[in-house]
């Protein structure tokens, strides 16, 4: 029992349950319905998948601001490939490959030129956005989704799968990533570098290689999030997902991630992502105006981190 209490995601999970029950109580007719649960799950998928990659980056001691631009670029790449008549699998692979490459470039710049991750990814945030706009000729790219839309669309009530494929993919990715973080040499090296990079160097950890891999992984997962975004939009949109990176970082931080590195958990980031969706959806159901939602979400981010600090001080 005590071990559970000490987990970094325990606090956010309690907050999630409390907020959820609050909205169930305020809006029992609509909020608690299973259709709404499924909708909220679908709305969390993009942030959740990107947050898996961001968790690695933040535990490693870095930050990735280029996520939103990478998602938008991925949707454009997929649309362009589909437009040429290629199959959906080729389009998805192309999209994820481009995003992974962008991530690997982030990693190379951080590891080899030793530029701080904030600056590097601030730069690529702009560059990838520009690339997306260029590739899309500065407008939305229409293409036949060739079944990719099925990943995120609501299922018929009779379906045995309960939730759309995108949600299951997100859960599988999160589960695998959590296992890899805890139980592989790579994962332990990521934690060690974020905790104390000098110790990691002293112990012969291949710091540069791990760094490049971490950012490439974050890019790949941003690409996968881009696939889900395309599935939702069914067009390639170069102006999509502006500011998405901030929601993704918020999810990680709410879930116990520390921007100083060495701390964070995939489970916590998932709870953080769901918490933000619940607040947004709940507020809509109760009829709270948009601007109040924004204030609430901002307050929750700061409160979550502040409470965690207090808990640890004791």
């Amino acid at each position: 029992m005590k071990a559970w209490l000490a987990r970094p995601w325990f606090g956010p999970l309690v907050a999630l349950v409390v907020v959820y029950l609050l909205f169930v109580w305020l809006s029992p007719d609509t909020f608690a319905r299973s259709v709404n649960l499924s909708t909220m799950a679908r709305q969390t998928v993009v942030v959740a998948i990107a947050a898996v990659g961001m968790t690695y980056v933040i535990i490693h001691g870095g930050i990735d601001l280029s996520v939103g631009s990478a998602v938008a670029l991925t949707t454009v790449v997929i649309a362009r490939v589909l437009e040429r008549g290629s199959g959906p699998l080729v389009a998805v692979l192309a999209g994820v490959a481009v995003a992974s490459l962008a991530g690997a470039i982030n990693g190379l710049l951080v590891a080899r030129l030793r530029i701080t991750p904030f600056i590097v990814t601030l730069g690529t945030m702009g560059a990838l956005r520009g690339a997306a706009k260029g590739l899309a000729d500065e407008q939305k790219v229409d293409a036949d989704p060739s079944g990719l839309d099925q990943l995120m669309s609501a299922l018929s009530p009779s379906s045995p799968w309960l939730l759309p494929a995108g949600v299951w993919i997100a859960l599988a990715v999160a589960g695998l990533a959590a296992l890899a973080l805890g139980y592989t040499v790579f994962g332990r090296h990521v934690v060690a570098i974020g905790s104390n990079v000098r110790t990691a160097e002293l112990c012969g950890v291949p710091v540069a290689r791990v760094t490049i891999l971490v950012y490439a992984l974050a890019g790949a997962l941003a690409g996968l999030a881009g696939v889900m975004e395309f599935s939702t939009l069914t067009v390639g949109d170069p102006t999509d997902s502006i500011g998405l990176e901030l929601a993704v970082i918020a999810a990680v931080v709410i879930g116990g991630g520390s921007l100083a590195g060495g701390q964070g958990s995939i489970a916590g980031a998932m709870v953080g992502a769901v918490l933000m969706t619940v607040i947004r959806t709940g507020c809509t159901h109760v009829g709270v105006p948009n601007w109040v939602q924004e204030i609430l979400t901002g307050a929750i981010i700061v409160a979550a981190v502040g409470l965690e600090r207090l808990r640890r001080r004791r």
């Binding site: 934690v191 905790s195 104390n196 110790t199 990691a200 002293l202």
Partner: peptide, 17 residues
């Protein structure tokens, strides 16, 4: 500041290399 990653466990520190 170099010899150990103080936030990590004894086991992690001992086996890191």
């Amino acid at each position: 500041s170099e010899g150990l990653a103080l936030a990590l466990s004894v086991a992690d520190n001992l086996t890191l290399s």
